[in-house]
């Protein structure tokens, strides 16, 4: 009875605290980082952590409410975390010229192709399914 008196308000506060949930994501990530170092598997620790969280959610050990706010914030602000990687171009003066234009061309044409291939594939499957339902 006593544990319940503590656990219920705690759970309620956890479900509304973005900071605590971000802390939980961090804890899982640190644990998987340690796991990867000890076991030496070539899988990024973030992905191991993702599987752990998914399994906890799927088995009902953790309610999605305990993570939703934290995860939403984190994924919404993800852009901030890779901005520091982008000024790497300043270390490569050769990109500010013909090579840079070539790279842009590769990315432009490649992106156009990926978009068409993905969209047409899914749409063909979709039409086929609609016709056979």
């Amino acid at each position: 009875m006593n544990t319940r008196a503590i656990a219920v308000p705690f759970r309620r506060r956890f479900h509304s605290s973005r900071l605590a949930q971000i802390g939980l994501l961090f804890a899982v990530w640190l644990a998987s980082e340690g796991f990867v170092r000890v076991v030496h598997i070539p899988i990024p620790s973030g992905i191991i952590g993702m599987f752990i969280v998914y399994i906890l959610l799927a088995w009902g050990k953790v309610s999605p409410l305990s993570l939703r706010r934290g995860a939403q914030w984190y994924l919404g602000e993800m852009l901030l975390f890779f901005i520091p990687a982008v000024p790497a171009v300043t270390a490569h003066p050769e990109f500010f010229g013909l090579l840079g234009l070539k790279i842009l061309a590769v990315i432009f044409l490649g992106t156009l192709s990926v978009m068409s291939a993905t969209a047409m594939t899914v749409d063909l499957f979709y039409r086929w399914r609609v016709r056979h339902e």
């Binding site: 993702m50 599987f51 959610l57």
Partner: peptide
Amino acid sequence: GPATVAFA
């Protein structure tokens, strides 16, 4: 790293 965990 933790952002990847959040994708779950």
